[in-house]
Design a binder for these strands. Structure first.
Length: 502
RNA sequence: GGCGCUAUCGUCUAGGGGUUAGGACGGAAGAUUCUCAAUCUUCAAACCCGGGUUCGAUUCCCGGUAGCGCUACCA
């Protein structure tokens, strides 16, 4: 293991943490942890227009929620502080000026309008839209004088004539000819440095050994390699991760629905499910037959060499499958606690419910949880407990057919008789006995016995077993809930009372 | 337009000069159950196209095509 490994995750605080970035963070983290190295968190906020402080806190929270941590960062400090680019402006300026004095960069006085015109012209005449190099040959002393006289100047890097090669751990050897890389601006005339420059200065100064990032940066890498060389700093190893696409094979974005980590958390996706899914997007273990990985498994097995270079389509169904798996694996108390929020929000449960309610709620969750992809579906699924509408029960197209069967009224009548015959509490045992009586009396069995009763009680001919449902209905009715639960007798009366008018 | 990256079931992927091309999600069928969900079993489903290299290419090389990215005083 190389203990000198240092990686970084460098998000811009311009919005919510996206699954693509989260996956980059995850791969960095796994690589660092596996190598016993250091993970650095750096905030790239040089885009002052779009960066907002509140996004930075969100970013950290999302990362923590996923179970990731870091060793150096704006919140933790570290030997290479500061870790926020807006606090490092003086550093960038210093090195840019150094490059100018060494002749590796030069002052450029071209105006934005002039450059834009030139660019448009080149594009129109079919030439590559690269910088003309107008200020490249300016005499440095003369240029210095002009700047001292107050003329606005940007700083451009001189790109060397030779082709730029580098090795990428995911993609292998990559080569760009220098003709297509024009002298990039590294410091704007406003004094604010440009991304491709600051990223190099920071990575070098923070002693980053492995740059693991999205492959939208692959084409920027030759510029950055040229920058490392100009600055006289060692070039790190690169690993460019493929893009995550939506089902339409376009780059995953907001219009594809839930794409931020916060979205998934709000939906009731478990962090370990999302982490596991993200790890599988672009990485697979040797053998390729295992799908379930705890963070510990991943830390042990992850390697950049096994990362796929091809883009991956985000598959919500597979995420849901993993989520269902982890929900089932979780201690029930954890799921109950998480689920509670959704029920409180839906107005089905009081805030901080007391103990009889909590015990009852645990049963509701146990009943419902096998049928959901994510926790936020629970309140909707619970409608068979919280909602009862006799009219709808009778008129739902599916039900009409069942109720039209000659046995149905007979079964319901017998069921009502049995309920009336004895006022003792309706336990599952008692319910079973009643069902037996009805069976004997009417000769109905199987569907013709169960379906009409389930329709009368829940509004649907299919649903959970009565053994589990009956106690929930009976106990729920004794509780003081924002949305009262109706017991079996009440439901049946409502159903039969309306029968004539229905 | 130029440059770069990518290409195995619908999707995520394993594999790799000779394989019945493996697994998973999803789909279909069956078992179980009063029904639904869950669970279990089974099935269908792929090497982008064209050239080379080779006794033999899905695998290696070249070209095409397609998708994506970069081509900014955005990040």
């Amino acid at each position: 293991m190389n203990s000198s490994v240092r990686v970084r995750f460098a998000p811009s605080p311009t919005g919510q943490l996206h699954v693509g970035n989260a996956r980059t963070a995850l791969f960095n983290w796994l690589f660092a942890r596996r190598a016993g190295g250091v993970m650095v968190l750096r905030i790239e906020d040089t885009d002052v227009e779009r960066s907002e402080a509140r996004y930075e806190t969100q970013l950290l929270d999302d990362l923590k929620w996923l179970g990731l941590d870091w060793d150096e960062g704006p919140d933790l400090g570290g030997p290479y502080a500061p870790y926020r680019q807006s606090d490092r402006l003086a550093i960038y300026r210093e090195h840019a000026e150094r490059l100018v004095s060494e002749g590796k960069a030069y002052l450029c006085f071209c105006s934005v309008e002039e450059l834009e015109r030139d660019r448009a012209h080149k594009l129109a005449t079919g030439q590559p839209p690269i910088y003309s190099g107008k200020c490249r040959a300016l005499d440095p002393a003369e240029a210095q004088r002009r700047r001292d006289d107050g003329e606005a100047a940007a700083i451009r890097l001189r790109i060397p004539e030779h082709p730029i090669r580098f090795h990428d751990i995911v993609h292998g050897a990559v080569e760009f000819s220098s003709e297509v890389v024009s002298d990039p601006i590294i410091l704007r005339s406003t004094g604010i440095p440009v991304y491709n420059y600051v990223v190099v200065v920071d990575d070098a100064l923070m002693k980053i050994t492995h740059v693991i990032r999205g492959d939208d940066h692959l084409s920027n890498t030759p510029k950055q390699v040229a920058l490392y060389e100009a600055l006289g700093w060692p070039v790190p190893q690169f690993a460019h991760l493929s893009t995550i696409l939506g089902a339409d094979r376009e780059r995953l974005s907001k219009r594809h629905g839930a794409t931020s980590i916060a979205n998934f958390r709000d939906m009731g996706v478990l962090p370990e499910a999302l982490l596991n899914y993200l790890a599988l997007l672009g990485w697979a273990p040797s053998g390729g037959t295992r799908e379930i990985f705890t963070p510990e498994d991943l830390k042990r097995e992850f390697s950049l060499e096994r990362v796929t270079p091809s883009p991956a389509v985000f598959d919500m169904e597979k995420l849901y499958w993993l989520n269902r798996h982890y929900i089932k694996q979780s201690p029930t108390e954890r799921i109950e606690r998480l689920a509670e929020t959704y029920f409180v929000r839906a107005g089905l449960l009081p805030e901080n419910p007391g103990n009889p309610t909590r015990t009852w709620f645990a049963k509701v969750i146990a009943l419902l949880v096998p049928s959901v992809d994510k926790l936020d579906e629970l309140p909707q699924r619970a409608s068979l407990v919280f909602q009862y509408n006799a009219d709808e029960a009778k008129h739902a197209p599916d039900n009409v057919e069942v109720l039209a069967s000659p046995k149905s009224p007979e079964v319901l009548a017998a069921f009502a008789d049995q309920l009336q015959a004895d006022n003792s509490p309706l336990t599952p045992e008692r319910f079973k006995a009643i069902m037996n009586e009805v069976k004997v009396k009417t000769g109905a069995k199987g569907k013709e016995l169960f379906h009409p009763i389930r329709i009368a009680l829940t509004g649907s001919h299919s649903g959970p077993e009565f053994d589990k449902l009956i106690p929930i209905l009976e106990e729920g009715a004794t509780l003081d809930l924002p949305q009262p639960v109706l017991n079996v007798r009440t439901r049946l009366h409502a159903f039969l009372a309306n029968r004539a008018s229905g």
